[in-house]
Design a protein around this nucleic acid. Sequence first.
DNA 1: CTCTTATTATGACCGCCAGTCAGTTATTAC
DNA 2: GTAATAACTGACTGGCGGTCATAATAAGAG
Lengths: 230, 230
Amino acid sequence: MGIHERKEREKEQRREEILNAAQAVFFERGLQNSTMDEIAEKAELSKGTLYLYYGSKEDLYLAVMVRGFDLLHEMCVDVIGSSGSPVEAMWNLGKSYYEFFEKHRNFFHMFYFLQSPTLHKQVSPDMMEACNAQTNKTWKLVIDLFQRGIEEGTFRKDINPIEAAVILWSSANSILIRIDNECERWKEQLNVDLVQVYFRSNALFLESMMTKDAYTSYASLLSEVQTQTP
Amino acid sequence: MGIHERKEREKEQRREEILNAAQAVFFERGLQNSTMDEIAEKAELSKGTLYLYYGSKEDLYLAVMVRGFDLLHEMCVDVIGSSGSPVEAMWNLGKSYYEFFEKHRNFFHMFYFLQSPTLHKQVSPDMMEACNAQTNKTWKLVIDLFQRGIEEGTFRKDINPIEAAVILWSSANSILIRIDNECERWKEQLNVDLVQVYFRSNALFLESMMTKDAYTSYASLLSEVQTQTP
DNA sequence: CTCTTATTATGACCGCCAGTCAGTTATTAC
DNA sequence: GTAATAACTGACTGGCGGTCATAATAAGAG
């Protein structure tokens, strides 16, 4: 009796198809300017059907966002796997996050959504939980990396790996947001290149968290950022 | 012929009255859940009249936000004026920004709005310009403070004051946002107090920007943050 | 005080859209 | 073939941002 399983599979496939349509529309128009009618049309379904698979427009938005978090997580795993030491990995994470920002700007934009609680009106607890689970996974990667560095003696013993992760990730993120919104403004009015600021900020934080020993041996790595300014 | 002036005054007063009503409603419900009808009712005017004074709901929102920026700017001026050295002032700015966050949470929430360009659909260029002018003023305060510290020899000569301001302010801001949204989650799941992280992050940054001389003389100031952890 | 003109205010109305639900179509079970 | 179940549809509702013809009020002229 494989009928039940086939149905299950087909249902999952529908969910994916709807998600594909939603992703295309959200990427093009953003949350506010996308309509469920347009998503339905793109998915070649009626609007009512969308609501059989997702509870609200915002739930659908979050579901697309989770794909972005997946991608980001995968990227982090790759970077950490292909880097030597924790310090190097941390630095490479910063670089890769910038690449993610450039390459997947659409997903990055979606991530903003989580920062404004007033927008969450229609998000179901389930979907929110799924989203949190996904981000927790990635946080864990970074925290563990700090932990490893502390144990190996490259990061200071007196820092808390969780705190360090929060500080580094938050500051990196906030500067990327600023690049996204205000890059030209800073360039024109004050002749400051925010992209450079991003890398300097990362370097500064890493330096201040490293032990003296590690600092001398990794100085060349972090000085990459200086070579960008002639 | 004072009639014209009186009319001008009355018009300005109406604008203020509308702004007061809008502020009350936006504070209570946020941008998405506030309606122009409710604001009109609170202002004891018809909806149509609102549009004689403000171009859109979002313009009105920005106008309220500018009040928040005003408040913040005033606070910064006070703090800098009543602090001794640039380092001390910078540290106090961090503390005061946290107080602002706690006391004027409603304004802080409004500030998010600027980070999501997709929400700006209806903002008029004029209003946006007014908003930028206001934030530029405050940025200038912080940048000048760094400049002064560099000249006095408390901050390293090799840092760019503008970059330093961006890094410090952005990272502080992003951690406050995290406190706002996720404070309980971090406390419960990982037993981390984000408020402490906020102050540690500020201290870390300031330390890494100070000269060695300044560091030794201000160590006691920044160690405030440590005394919070038994 | 009266008439004309200019300014300010009104609220019914429009178009748009998220979400609903009674009804239709397709699929499975017997 | 038929009953039962599942999947899908699209017209409809309610709510809201924004508009505009009209009304009310105030100012100026005679």
